[in-house]
Design a protein around this nucleic acid. Sequence first.
RNA 1: UCCUUGAUAGCUCAAUGGUAGAGCACCCGGCUGUUAACCGGGCGGUUGUAGGUUCGAGUCCUACUCAAGGAGCCA
Length: 430
Amino acid sequence: MATVLIKNLDKHIGEEVSVRGWLYNQRSSGKISFLIVRDGTGLVQGVLVKKDVGEELASLAGNLTQESSLIIRGVVREEPRSVGGYEILIAGLEIVSIAEEYPITHKEHGVDFLADRRHLWLRTPRQTAIIRVRSEIEQSIRDFFYENDFVLADAPIITPAACEGTTTLFELDYHGDKAFLSQSGQLYNEAAAMALGRIYCLGPTFRAEKSKTRRHLMEFWMIEAEMAYFDMDDNINLQEKMLHFVIRRVLERCEREMKTLERDVARLEKITLPFPRISYTEAVEILKKEGVDFVWGDDFGAPHETAISKYFDAPVFVHRYPATIKAFYMKPDPENPAVVLGADLLAPEGYGEIIGGGQRIDDFKLLEQRIAEHNLPQEAFAWYLDLRRYGSVPHSGFGLGIERTVAWLCGLDHIRETIPFPRMLHKMYP
RNA sequence: UCCUUGAUAGCUCAAUGGUAGAGCACCCGGCUGUUAACCGGGCGGUUGUAGGUUCGAGUCCUACUCAAGGAGCCA
């Protein structure tokens, strides 16, 4: 007899199988009872008829509490009335462990209550659906890069200095030396790209800013890619191709999850290539047309990003930002040095910036000058300057925020559900 | 860090300044196709903390703690 996953039950109709999982819910009407079992891949209804299985097994089932672990055995059949469309006529039941009174019920709970029990909250259908979509997103990104001749070159997490010198970092003691948790692997990626051509990394990044919004975490994951001999347009072309690939994969393979999340997938299905592209200056004009008070040269805040992205059904690239509001390594536009060859990608439906990227300065002298202008420690960037000293080439890269992408594709209103254990301001339990 | 709102049973919420209540969870009983099952009964409280006003405070005032939503910063 086969032990099967609930999501594969459709391949075992008429067979006797066993399913190993946990009791999600139970309903009884005396002589017949229904055990809803979950195994992490889905839900299935087990039907237990007292006169068929006997008094002993029936009373055993009566002792089961929510989230008790159990193994059920029986014949699979199609049943449209059942959750998931299949049910198992229970012939055997093994209790693995009786759960104590479970704190999370099938009724409503507040976010604070759930967040404190994240380790249990994770078991609910909605949360498992989100984590499965997240997994598919990361897997599809890896597949995309693998198929496009990229090499995975992971960047360090402990770093000796700030990458961009702008954000607040978590500090730690490195055997007597000061060290920081990485805010970006980009500088290391540039070195790796000079070695391998096209590379990417996937890892956690850390920001110590006291951000308290629906789109910020203290610890989040980024995919960062860096490509030698890529200019800004090559960079943007690659990004939209990658994101389109990811969207198609999620639509293809996460149909069930999107249904659980009640995501309106039509909005994702109609996204086609190429994505719209506008300059920062054009974006400012849109804001002014919308009656928003905005001065050329300022950076966009969350409301501005939302106003701009509402103009488009697809993600929109905003390129050529003023040099003053972007990182020191951004390459100036040769046609207008006041702006840089960088582009951010704003997700639709008000989900904000999901990609930040651009072409890097490849000229030694200019980079050295920028480091000085930004009051960054020259010694710490000596190795980074070396990349321009030994065979410098035009190159570009980008970073995509995993959590914001998950939030957008799943249609979530808060980023805290996009990662198994979110690290938020003043909250890191469990 | 700032602004706004909130904290009452295990959970989600009610309660003119005048006897703190409901639904769910849990326990007991009933029900042969349930769908957050249903029906009957039971259990359940120092109203976030500390002061104050009042004959009387869950309700009004002050401070603090914690949380949520938003801003800034960013992905």
